[in-house]
Amino acid sequence: MTACFWGFFAGSALASERGHHINADILGIIITNPRLRWWRRLIVLTIELVVTAAILYWGYLMLAEELAKYPIWKTTPALKIPYFAWRVSIFLGFFFMTVFAAAYLYAHIRGIEIDYGDDTDAEDMNKKKEAGQ
């Protein structure tokens, strides 16, 4: 189970870095006005940063509670693996997701073009199809 937690949160941090995490935002395709697209992306990135920062804080509280109980850590029944081993993966996963969300928001505000996976444009998709990618 510990290895699964590490793999899951490493994958989620990587997906966050590449902008390929799952979302249900279809406004990025529907909105064609560049100014509205900019504002939509600003709002989405801000919400993403706030949510990941809140969960990161809760992850910190979880780790702090675990470290406070150091000599008598909770462990798994069979292998006696401390819960801290997988809880740190949760914290690190959300740490990196928060860092990437902050970096993308900063780049967006500064006007730096970044190929972000969720911000698909119908014209870009057609160009890629024509190029054979």
Score class of each variant (00 low, 15 high):
residue 95 F to R: 00
residue 22 I to M: 08
residue 3 A to E: 07
residue 24 A to I: 06
residue 100 F to D: 15
residue 20 H to C: 09
residue 40 R to M: 08
residue 78 A to Y: 12
residue 55 I to W: 02
residue 97 M to I: 13
residue 73 W to Y: 03
residue 32 T to A: 06
residue 78 A to D: 12
residue 53 A to N: 08
residue 33 N to G: 02
residue 89 S to R: 10
residue 12 S to E: 06
residue 75 T to Q: 14
residue 129 K to M: 14
residue 87 R to P: 00
residue 81 I to Y: 02
residue 107 A to N: 13
residue 123 E to N: 13
residue 99 V to C: 10
residue 103 A to G: 03
residue 21 H to M: 14
residue 40 R to P: 01
residue 122 A to D: 09
residue 75 T to W: 00
residue 37 R to Q: 11
residue 35 R to C: 03
residue 93 G to F: 04
residue 81 I to S: 02
residue 117 G to Y: 04
residue 104 Y to M: 10
residue 111 G to A: 04
residue 129 K to R: 09
residue 128 K to R: 11
residue 131 A to I: 02
residue 101 A to D: 02
residue 37 R to W: 01
residue 116 Y to T: 06
residue 86 W to N: 00
residue 45 L to E: 02
residue 40 R to K: 15
residue 91 F to P: 11
residue 115 D to K: 14
residue 91 F to D: 11
residue 21 H to N: 15
residue 23 N to C: 01
residue 64 A to C: 06
residue 13 A to P: 11
residue 111 G to C: 02
residue 31 I to H: 05
residue 109 I to D: 06
residue 34 P to Q: 08
residue 38 W to T: 05
residue 88 V to T: 14
residue 50 V to A: 14
residue 37 R to Y: 02
residue 92 L to K: 00
residue 94 F to A: 08
residue 126 N to S: 11
residue 96 F to K: 07
residue 9 F to G: 00
residue 116 Y to S: 03
residue 22 I to C: 01
residue 114 I to S: 08
residue 129 K to I: 07
residue 24 A to D: 05
residue 8 F to M: 12
residue 105 L to N: 04
residue 59 G to F: 00
residue 86 W to A: 05
residue 65 E to H: 14
residue 13 A to L: 02
residue 23 N to S: 09
residue 74 K to L: 12
residue 98 T to G: 07
residue 32 T to Q: 10
residue 15 A to H: 05
residue 7 G to W: 06
residue 1 M to L: 10
residue 46 T to I: 06
residue 98 T to E: 13
